[in-house]
Each structure stands twice: as C-alpha cells, then as structure tokens.
Amino acid sequence: MKSFTVNISDQVINDLENRIQNTRWPGEEDNSGWNFGTSEKYLKELADYWLNDYDWKKQETLLNQYPQYLVEIDGIQIHFQHIKGKGENSKPLILTHGWPDSYYRFHKIIPLLTEGDQNFDLVIPSIPGFGFSGKVAVNSEAVADLWKKLMTETLGYEKFCAAGGDVGMSVTKALASKYADVVEAVHFTDIGYPMGQEDPSTMTEEEQQFAQFVQQWWYSEGAYAMVHSTKPQSLAYGLNDSPVGLAAWILSFVNAGAPPELIEKAFGGKDEMLTNIMIYWVTQTIGTSMRMYKADAIAQWGGSVPLQKSDVPAGLAVFPREAQFPREWADRFVNVIHFVKMEEGGHFAALEVPEAFANELRSFFYSVK
C-alpha cells in the first residue's frame, strides 16, 4: 500500500482545451431541448465554462485533501481513500460508487460522517476500470471479492459495513451475500430492477406497477445500458477522443428532459459535474467503466449461479427522483430491517443532498445491533 496524489500534467490539460476548442458540433433540431439527447445549446455553454471558468488545479487540490492510496489486490491496482473517524469506536464503512460517477460521488459526506459521536472510518475505492484504479473491467461479484480483501487483509478490519447505489448496489449486495461473516450491515439507494425473468404471479400489485414503470423507462431512457452491455468498445472510441462527446453521453444519462439547473444540481453544481467528467477524461477510463456492464451481463446471462439472499441487516432509502421500488421487491434480495422514503434528492444523493444522505447512513448503521 502506498500513498497517492492526483497530479495531472499541463500537457494533458492543454490537450483537453485544444480538443474542446476544436469540437465539431453536429447541430440540433430547432427548439428540441433535451428531447433528442443532450442539448447542444446547453453543452456549448458548458464547454465555454469548462474552457474559461473551470479551474482543474483548484479541483485537484480538493481531491487531494483526504488521504488516498494505491494497493495491488489479485493483480489489480486499487485506488481508494481512507479517512479515519475522529471519535472513539468508529465503524468501518466502505462506500461504492456507480456509473457515470466516481469515488468523487462521496466527497461532500466525508466530513459529515467522520466527526461526532457516531462516526465512521471511511473507505472509498475506485471500482476497477474507473478513475485511478487499474484499467480492467470485472463484474460486480469480483469487485466484492476485492473489497473484502481490501477491508480485511489490507486494512485489517475484522468486520465492516457497506453502502452503495447503482453499480455500487450490485457490489454491496454481493458483499452481503458472500461475506456475511465479516459484513455487519449494508445500505442501498436502489436494489435492482425487474428484467422480465420474474414470474408475474409471484409479484404483488406494487411490484407489478414497479415492473411496468421500469419497462417504460427502459424503452425511453435505457439505451445507454444496452450499448454498454453489448457494444461498449464501439462507443469508447468516440468518448475517449472527444471531451465534449464524453460530457454529452454522461449528461444524457443524468436526467433526460430535465432543465439544466436540475441536471447540475444532481451532481452538486457545474464544478462538481465537470470534475467527475474530468476523472474519466484524465484517466482514459470511460471505455473500461462501460465494459463493466458487459462483464456483469456475461455473468448474469452466462449461466453463473445467482447469489443467495443474505441475512445481513439491510437498510434502504428511496429518494423521490429515483425509481420508486416497493419494499417487497427489496425483500426478495436482502434482509430489509429499515425502509424509508426520503423527502428530497435523486440518483446522486450524496452530491445533491449530502446532509440528508449522511444522516440516513448514520441513523441506520448505528441502529444495527
């Protein structure tokens, strides 16, 4: 294990600026807004801000304010933050991000969870294929294996808690299923979606309504996941070559059809949004991050044995701008002892409503005996 500092060369930044300036804009339908994908009008404004107002060196300093490390586990380089709680008897907690975000997803809740009487030792890794971890794509279950070794062998924790959403949900669910002997409790902001494999006769009315919503959403907004799960390499060439193309793809996922202020709010603001995009750009990991979807698809449809439901205590928080899954759907996969509907926030709650999200994590994990 060795210390790590984010330090991107001026050459990389100068190249980025040249690419933004030389963007070949495709044009868009009059008054189309976000109805055909990312708005070109908005994207041009963002590109101008990126060039003339955004300060990467300032953001780099913020990224380096907490201890970061690199360690090799099973031949894969793992980048992670490790921030000790400032109180006595801190609970070890590993937080796993998703796509299209990064370990930066949790930066606002670090000071909220490491201080006070109920505090945590936070471990915030970059999934392999994302950010500063090794550029290799592995499936969610394999990531869970790495996280277990990171927590118990590298850092020496006998037991720990885990939380995650999006791709991080799949990793955290696998941790609970495979390593109940060391995982004390888990927390989720989503818990997976009906994919047509379920017998409708076994589903409650609420679950069937949820399945109908997911099917409708999948047809209107799910193209990104289908591409990632089938042809990620084809898409990677363009996104790895064009910063504006990369931004357009990431933003089209955040909230299609939403006004710009809501899209920015979902990431915490323009600077946070661009810093997240920059982490993909400077590490050239958009390709491997998308290939994780393919790795999970191969595992799911390739005949692997499904993970068993875990007895590890699980808490779930449903944010209003997230898929509104019912409790009985979550009961199929995890041992739900805590289920709450939140008043504000969406898919990136740790960035958008950090105080509410931190309070939810603290309340749940410190209630588990």
Rank of each mutant, 00 (worst) to 15 (best):
Ala266Gly: 04
Gly131Phe: 12
Ser126Gly: 06
Asn18Ser: 09
Ser170Ala: 12
Thr5Asp: 05
Trp147Ser: 11
Ala137Gln: 12
His79Val: 04
Ile124Val: 11
Lys91Phe: 10
Val312Arg: 08
Ala258Tyr: 11
Lys58Glu: 05
Met203Lys: 05
Trp217Gly: 10
Val136Glu: 15
Ile73Arg: 09
Ala317Val: 13
Gln208Thr: 12
Ser289Thr: 10
Met203Trp: 06
Glu45Pro: 09
Val334His: 07
Glu115Gln: 15
Val182His: 12
Asn139Trp: 15
His347Cys: 05
Glu88Phe: 02
Gly85Leu: 01
Gly196Arg: 13
Glu45Gln: 15
Arg24Trp: 05
Glu72Ala: 04
Leu316His: 09
Tyr237His: 07
Ser32Gln: 06
Asp121Lys: 11
Ala185Val: 03
Ser229Leu: 00
Pro92Lys: 11
Tyr193His: 15
Phe325Gly: 03
Ile110Arg: 11
Asp121Pro: 09
Ser289Trp: 04
Asn89Cys: 08
Gly129His: 08
Glu328Thr: 15
Val340Thr: 10
Ser242Thr: 02
Pro128Asp: 09
Gly315Gln: 06
Ala174Trp: 08
Pro100Thr: 13
Tyr157Gln: 13
Pro320Met: 01
Thr96Glu: 09
Asp55Gly: 01
Ile13Phe: 04
Ser177Tyr: 05
Ala295Cys: 06
Asn240Phe: 01
Leu316Lys: 10
Val186His: 07
Asp53Ile: 05
Asn31His: 06
Phe357Ala: 03
Leu95Val: 11
Asp166Val: 03
Thr152His: 12
Arg19Glu: 11
Gly156Glu: 01
Phe325Ser: 09
Glu17Pro: 00
Arg362Trp: 10
Tyr366Gly: 07
Met169Phe: 14
Asn64Cys: 08
Asp331Gly: 00
Asp101Leu: 14
Val353Phe: 07
Pro200Ala: 14
Ser367Asn: 11
Glu328His: 08
Trp217Ala: 14
Pro111Lys: 13
Asn35Tyr: 14
Phe188Val: 03
Asp241Gly: 01
Val227Glu: 11
Leu262Tyr: 15
Gly33Asn: 08
Lys2Cys: 02
Leu155Cys: 14
Leu351Val: 03
Glu272Lys: 03
Leu361Ile: 01
Phe4Met: 05
Ile78Phe: 03
Leu316Trp: 11
